[in-house]
Design a protein around this nucleic acid. Structure first.
Length: 778
DNA sequence: AAGAGATTTATTTTT
DNA sequence: TAAATCTCTT
C-alpha cells in the first residue's frame, strides 16, 4: 500500500528571472519557470491560471516574501486576499518562516469579508456619519438573515409560507452582489415577483439599519459606498496598498471585483490567482467572467499558466482531466504531471447509503493498518451535508475517530447561538432579533409570550428606546415615567424578571472578563440549571458551551470594554474550515466538496457519486434552460478528485433514502468520462457509462479482472463488510445473473446463497466472489 | 402561555 | 426520516 505521495522537487532550470539579491534568488529555488515568472513579475496586472496542485500557494507566499526581500515595499504596503481565514493564517505562517516575524508586520492578509470589516472599523466616524452605522454594529450570519427576512415579509403584509424566505434572501443577496440598492433593484424589476422581492429588500434593509447590523454582503458593498461618499478614504488606501494579491479569483463576484479594482486603481499592481475549472460558487454570484475577462479589464495584464501538477498520481490527474474536459465553459489549458502512475481509482457500487458508509469505514480501517498512514491523511467528501449522518453513525459504531467540516458552523449551533444572543444584545441593544431569540430559547423567557413582548415593544417604541432598554427600565424599581406598558398577570412578572436579569448583566458587561460574563449569563438566565445532565444530547450541548467558554478565555488579555466587540466579530467571520487543524490526533475528515476546496489529502473518498446528488438534482432539472449549472457540478467533482494525492475512491449506492423513502441510485453521468483503464471498478457505471471501445472491452473481459480491493481480500479479515441482502440481483463473473436467496452473516464476511439463472443455486463467500450488484428489477 | 400531539416539509453548496 | 411548524387543549 503506497503511503502519502513523496514530495516532488521541481527540476531547477536556469531561470531568466534572476533577482538582484542572493536572498531573492533563494525564494526561487525549487520553482519551475512559470512559477518563477509569477513570483518575479512584480509590476502591473498579472493573472495566474493555476491548475490544482500546481503550487500556487507557494507562488503567493514566495511572491510576497520576494516583494519585501527585494525592497519593493514593506509588508504594510501589501494586501493579500484569501478565500478562508485558515488559508490566510497558513500563508502568513509560511511568510514568517521565510522572512521572520519583523518583516511581516503590518501585512494585511485575510478574506474579502475580513477586509471589508477592517475598512469599516478603521473609519468609525465616517461610517456613522455617511452610512448610519454605529461602531458597535453586529454582523448578521445566515440564520439572523433568515429571521430578518421573515420579519420583513410579515411586515409588508405577506405570508412567509408563500413567499419563501430563503429564496427572498438569495435574491436580495444576488442584488447586493451586483451593487444594486433597494431602490435601484425596485426600478429594474419587471415581474410581480421582482416587485415582491424589491419590497422585501427595502424592508429587510431598514430592519438591518434599525438593528445597527450588517449582513455578509454589506461587508463588501458598504466599503465601496464609503469610498463613493468620502473619496478621501479610498485615497488613503490607494496610497497604502501598493501591491495587491487575490487568491481563488475564480470565486469572486461583482462587488469583490469592484472593491479590488478600486483598491488597485492607482498602482495597478494587481496579482490574481485562480482556476476557472475550480469555480464552484456560482450560486453565491461568483462570476467566472472576472477571471476570463481579466486581461480585457486590465489592459497589459500578463497571463501565466501553471500547468504542472505536483500533488497527485498520474492516474488521478488523468481522471480529473478527462472529467473536466467535458465542460464547454473553460479556458484552453491542460494539466500534466511527472508523478508516478499510482494505483487505479477505485469505483465501487454499494447496495445503499448504509453499506456505502460501511465500505468507506471498513476500507479506511484497512488502510490505516499501514503505520505510515494516519486518519489525518484521509478525507471523505460528499455533496450535501445530510450525507454526513450515515457516515458519522458508522464511524462512531466502529470507533474510528473523525471530525466533520462544513454544514452547521460551531457558532450557528442552537445552544451557542442562544447564549451568544445575550452577548450580542449586551453589545448592541438595538439587536431585536437577539432579544427575541433569548426570550424564545432561554428559561428566563418562560411566560413571556407574544402578547407581553408586543406590549413592551410598543412601550419602548413610544419612549424612543430600544427593546432591550425597554425591558431593563421596566424592571427598575422607580419607573422612568408614569406610563407603564399594558402588562398583566404572567406576562408582567416574566417581563420584569427578564428585564432585571438583562439589567444586571448589562452592568457586568464591560467591567468583568468574558468568561465571567459567560458564567453570569448561564446562571442568571436559568440555562445552567435547566440542563438535564442525564441526557446525552444536553451533555453534548453543555460541552459545546464549555468550548465556547474556553474560547472566551483567549480574550482575557483584551480590555473588558473591547473584548466583547472583538469576540463577536470573530464569531461572525470564521468558517468551519478555519478551525481545521492540520494535524489532530489522527482524525479522519468528513467534509463537503465545497469546503474541501484548497485542501489536499493522501487518501480521498468521494461518496454518493450519483445523478441527483452529484450532479445535484436541482442542476439536472435546470439542465434544459441552464446547462451551465451542470458544468458547475462537474467542476465540483473535479475539485474533489484533485484533492487526492495517492488514493482515490468513488462510491455510489444502488438505492438511497431520500426523505425516508428508498429511491434507485443512478451512477453519476460524470463517471462516463473516466476511462476504464484508470479504474478499478465494481460498479454499473462502467457498463452504462459509454460506448467507448476501451470501456466496452473492459466490459467484455467481465468482472473477473476486477478485485474489490487493491490488496488481496483473502489475507484480510476486515475487508468485506456486510454488503449483500436477500432479494438483490447480482452478476457473477462465472455464473452470470442470479438473485440472492439467503444471507448468513459471518464474523467479517457474509455467506450468501445465490439462485443463478443458468447454474442454479450456489453457496458463496461474499469476499471471494466476483459479484456485482445489479439494479433492482434487472 | 405551554405542552402534547398532529402534520408538514425539506436537502444543495457558505463568507 | 427527522426536524420544524401548526393546532388544540389545558
Amino acid at each position: 500500500m503506497p503511503g502519502p505521495a513523496e514530495p516532488v522537487t521541481t527540476p531547477s532550470t536556469p531561470s531568466p528571472f534572476v533577482p538582484g539579491s542572493a536572498a531573492g534568488r533563494d525564494l526561487l529555488r525549487g520553482l519551475n519557470v512559470a512559477q518563477q515568472e509569477a513570483v518575479t513579475t512584480t509590476e502591473g496586472p498579472v493573472i495566474v491560471v493555476a491548475g490544482p496542485g500546481s503550487g500556487k500557494t507557494r507562488v503567493l507566499t514566495n511572491r510576497i516574501a520576494f516583494l519585501v526581500q527585494e525592497g519593493r515595499v514593506t509588508a504594510d504596503g501589501i494586501l493579500a486576499v484569501t478565500f478562508t481565514n485558515k488559508a490566510a493564517r497558513e500563508m502568513r505562517g509560511r511568510i514568517v518562516h521565510l522572512l521572520g516575524e519583523d518583516a511581516v508586520r503590518g501585512l494585511t492578509m485575510g478574506t474579502f469579508h475580513a477586509l471589508g470589516v477592517r475598512i469599516l472599523r478603521e473609519n468609525p466616524g465616517l461610517v456613522a456619519d455617511r452610512l448610519g452605522l454605529l461602531p458597535n454594529f453586529l454582523i448578521y450570519d445566515g440564520a439572523d438573515q433568515i429571521d430578518t427576512v421573515k420579519r420583513a415579509i410579515t411586515a409588508i403584509g405577506q405570508d412567509p409560507k408563500q413567499v419563501v424566505p430563503r429564496r427572498m434572501l438569495s435574491r436580495i443577496s444576488a442584488a447586493k452582489s451586483l451593487l444594486l440598492s433597494p431602490s435601484e433593484f425596485a426600478a429594474a424589476g419587471e415581474t410581480y415577483d421582482d416587485e415582491v422581492v424589491a419590497r422585501v429588500y427595502v424592508k429587510y434593509q431598514s430592519l438591518l439599519q434599525a438593528a445597527n447590523a450588517v449582513d455578509f454582503d454589506d461587508l463588501l458593498g458598504l466599503p465601496i459606498r464609503l469610498f463613493d461618499e468620502a473619496p478621501g478614504t479610498l485615497a488613503r488606501y490607494l496610497q497604502r496598498y501598493r501591491y495587491i494579491l487575490v487568491d481563488e479569483y475564480q470565486d469572486t463576484n461583482r462587488v469583490q471585483y469592484v472593491l479590488i479594482s478600486a483598491l488597485a486603481s492607482h498602482w495597478r499592481n494587481l496579482f490574481v490567482v485562480g482556476d476557472p475549472d475550480q469555480s464552484i460558487y456560482g450560486w453565491r454570484q461568483a462570476d467566472i467572467r472576472n477571471i476570463l475577462d481579466f486581461q480585457a479589464e486590465f489592459p497589459g495584464a500578463k497571463r501565466i499558466d501553471l500547468e504542472v501538477n505536483y500533488r497527485s498520481t498520474r492516474r488521478i490527474v488523468d481522471v480529473a482531466d478527462r472529467v473536466i474536459r467535458e465542460n464547454t465553459q473553460r479556458l484552453d489549458r491542460s494539466l500534466r504531471t511527472d508523478n508516478a502512475e499510482g494505483e487505479p481509482v477505485t469505483l465501487r457500487e454499494l447496495a445503499d447509503g448504509g453499506h456505502e458508509a460501511q465500505f468507506v469505514v471498513g476500507e479506511i480501517r484497512r488502510l490505516l493498518r499501514d503505520p505510515k498512514l494516519t486518519g489525518n491523511d484521509v478525507a471523505v467528501m460528499y455533496r450535501t451535508t445530510a450525507q454526513s449522518r450515515l457516515l458519522e453513525q458508522e464511524f462512531r459504531r466502529e470507533g474510528l475517530p473523525y471530525r466533520v467540516v462544513g454544514g452547521v458552523r460551531f457558532y450557528e449551533r442552537k445552544e451557542v447561538k442562544d447564549i451568544l444572543a445575550i452577548f450580542r444584545l449586551l453589545h448592541n441593544p438595538a439587536d431585536t432579533i437577539s432579544v427575541e431569540r433569548a426570550i424564545d430559547a432561554l428559561p428566563i423567557g418562560r411566560g413571556l409570550g407574544p402578547k407581553a413582548l408586543d406590549a413592551v415593544r410598543e412601550w419602548a417604541a413610544a419612549r424612543g428606546t430600544t427593546l432591550t432598554a425597554g425591558f431593563i427600565d421596566l424592571a427598575r424599581p422607580v419607573a422612568v415615567d408614569s406610563a407603564r406598558p399594558a402588562l398583566a398577570g404572567t406576562g408582567k412578572g416574566a417581563a420584569e424578571r427578564f428585564g432585571a436579569v438583562l439589567g444586571q448583566l448589562m452592568d457586568l458587561s464591560g467591567s468583568v472578563s468574558l468568561p465571567e460574563l459567560f458564567d453570569a449569563i448561564v446562571e442568571q438566565t436559568g440555562y445552567r440549571s435547566s440542563l438535564n445532565l442525564d441526557s446525552e444530547e444536553e451533555m453534548q450541548r453543555w460541552a459545546n458551551l464549555i468550548e465556547l467558554r474556553s474560547d472566551l478565555e483567549r480574550y482575557e488579555s483584551v480590555s473588558p470594554e473591547n473584548a466583547l466587540g472583538q469576540y463577536l466579530e470573530n464569531t461572525a467571520l470564521v468558517a468551519d474550515v478555519d478551525s481545521l487543524p492540520d494535524e489532530d490526533g489522527g482524525l479522519v475528515t468528513l467534509i463537503t466538496l465545497h469546503s474541501a476546496k484548497g485542501l489536499e489529502y493522501p487518501v480521498v473518498f468521494i461518496v454518493g457519486v450519483e445523478d441527483g446528488l452529484l450532479p445535484i438534482s436541482r442542476a439536472v432539472e435546470m439542465e434544459w434552460d441552464n446547462p451551465l449549472a451542470l458544468e458547475e457540478e462537474r467542476r465540483l467533482f473535479y475539485v474533489g478528485i484533485t484533492r487526492a494525492r495517492t488514493l482515490l475512491y468513488l462510491t455510489h449506492a444502488a438505492t438511497r433514502q431520500v426523505y425516508g423513502r428508498y429511491q434507485p441510485g443512478v451512477p453519476s453521468r460524470f463517471l462516463a468520462a473516466i476511462p476504464a483503464s484508470d479504474l478499478n471498478a465494481l460498479s454499473r457505471a462502467t457498463r452504462h457509462g459509454s460506448r467507448d471501445r476501451d470501456r466496452l472491452s473492459d466490459r467484455v473481459r467481465g468482472t473477473s479482472n476486477v478485485t474489490p480491493f487493491p490488496t488481496p481480500a483473502r489475507a484480510d479479515p476486515v475487508a468485506p463488510r456486510v454488503t449483500y441482502a436477500a432479494g438483490q440481483h447480482v452478476f457473477h463473473a462465472k455464473f452470470g445473473e442470479g438473485q440472492i436467496t439467503g444471507v448468513d452473516d459471518r464474523r467479517d464476511d457474509q455467506e450468501i446463497v445465490v439462485d443463478f439463472k443458468r447454474h442454479g443455486s450456489k453457496r458463496l463467500m461474499a469476499s471471494f466472489s466476483p459479484l456485482e450488484i445489479l439494479p433492482p428489477g434487472t
